[in-house]
């Protein structure tokens, strides 16, 4: 199985080549086009309850779609909903990524996805909700972002501060704490940053160059209000 990013930049697509019998698991609705040898199955990862909990708790899509090359080799084109870059990550069985909801685009067979409950403070204040996706296993993981994806590499005990709504994914060797952006609450709110995450290495943090929530607020002013 091979995969490559087409049209890198704001409007990319991923081309995944599948040998006969291979599968790729994608966010529901992510498929753009596929060879006629590819079958689309809707599969509830982790069984019905697992899927339900993922849907209810992390707000992720209830179903993943599984694209299977059941009648011979073929290719699949996948794309995310929002404009933004795509990143390909290789999982070797030992590295694990925490992915905020909406960050997952696709994963090959062997990639394991589960919902993980965050601690109370992280859940309340982190901006990703109480549940995030923990993705491990082996294979290729495809993440998408809103805007460009930026990779931050942290050495052991090296720290970095990230506005929580710009988070896409981070390795499980990385810890983080939520804190106020400025020393005072008023300054934190008026600076427009509110709460930030202080990450501590070692590991990698992927952030997106645009904030979906802020973009939503900005675009709302142009939507005519119908009475």
């Amino acid at each position: 199985m091979k995969s490559e990013i087409l049209y890198p930049g704001a409007f990319p697509m991923v081309r995944v080549y599948l040998n006969e019998g291979e599968t790729v698991k994608a966010e529901s609705g992510a498929m753009v086009a596929a060879s006629p040898t590819i079958d689309i199955e809707s599969k509830m990862e982790g069984g019905f309850l697992g899927a339900l909990s993922r849907k209810m708790l992390s707000g992720e899509k209830f179903f993943f779609q599984t694209l299977r090359a059941s009648r011979g080799a073929g290719e699949v084109l996948l794309a995310p909903t929002v404009p933004g870059e795509i990143v390909l990550l290789d999982l070797d069985g030992v590295n694990e990524y925490m992915v905020q909801k909406d960050g997952f685009l696709a994963g090959t067979e062997g990639v394991k996805i589960e919902s993980k409950m965050q601690s109370l403070t992280r859940g309340l204040l982190g901006g990703e909700g109480f549940f995030i996706l923990r993705i491990g296993g082996t294979g290729r993981l495809i993440l998408n972002s809103f805007g460009a994806i930026h990779k931050i590499e942290l050495k052991p005990n090296e720290e970095y501060i990230v506005d929580n709504s710009h988070l896409v994914a981070w390795t499980s060797t990385t810890t983080y704490n939520i804190e106020k952006a400025s020393s005072g609450w008023i300054a934190s709110l008026t600076s427009g940053e509110g709460l930030v995450c202080r990450f501590r290495g070692p590991g990698v943090v992927y952030i997106q160059s645009r904030n979906p929530g802020s973009f939503g607020n900005w675009i709302r002013q142009f939507i005519p209000v119908s009475e």
Partner: peptide, 19 residues
Amino acid sequence: SIPNALCFGDGLPGAGAPC
């Protein structure tokens, strides 16, 4: 060839070198 740990340090990948 199956890794069970990640090693970090100068000159190693940011996400850790599998070992």
